[in-house]
Design a protein around this nucleic acid. Structure first.
Lengths: 105, 105
DNA sequence: ATCGTATATCGCAAATATACGATAATATTC
DNA sequence: GAATATTATCGTATATTTGCGATATACGAT
């Protein structure tokens, strides 16, 4: 029921990033991971007011969006920000906004 | 079931903006409005592969997010971008990304 | 091998989002 | 005032998201 095919690749791509950030828990998770530089899942569960399975689910979405990378460290999972991806997103979103503002005025 | 209260005002605020942009139709609508500087609803319906009621619904969400302003012009509705809001969003998102990237590395 | 710890995944319930047709509301024109 | 045109809203069906407990998986320690 989501008519993805009807829109351009760019529109879908940007919308997917925005959707990944469209939940306060995922904003908070990004901040928490960045804060600690690299963050094991347990730290996130303690830091967030959500159940472990819910945190794991949100992290998964951030990984699928490509903003977070995960490595296994023994029994733990260790997450870190993908700084290149964040920087790229910042850049393309900035361009998008600037283009809107420039054209609209 | 959305635990908004459990997160900070900033986290919720940014997430709300991101959610508003988290659909390709709304990205396309913003671009279309900017393109024409000000855009009546009918133009959007022609430009988009969606029913009139669906377009109206998406525009409403963009208005609620504060990114689009609407004025009534006779029987028509005329939409335009709120450039200050777009610029503010660009700025705060840029700061958010930069802070994440800076801390994480 | 068994136990304990850490995390991912599954299954489910509730809430939201998406899309559309039908209808209502509003303004213009005849 | 009736007919037309434009847009918003309502009702509804379906899909997706959110959240959690329970379970499965993987690993280290005993």
């Amino acid at each position: 029921m989501h008519k993805r095919e009807a829109f351009t690749r760019d529109e879908n791509c940007l919308a997917d990033y925005m959707k990944a950030l469209g939940h306060p828990a995922r904003i908070a998770i990004l901040k928490a991971i960045a804060e600690k530089k690299s963050c094991i899942c347990g730290d996130l569960v303690v830091a967030l007011p959500l159940a472990q399975s819910t945190v794991s689910q949100h992290v998964k979405e951030l990984k699928e969006a490509g903003l977070v990378k995960g490595t296994v460290d023994g029994p733990r999972s260790c997450y870190c920000i993908d700084p290149e991806a964040m920087a790229r997103l910042e850049g393309s979103f900035g361009k998008f906004c600037a283009s809107i503002v420039q054209k609209c005025c």
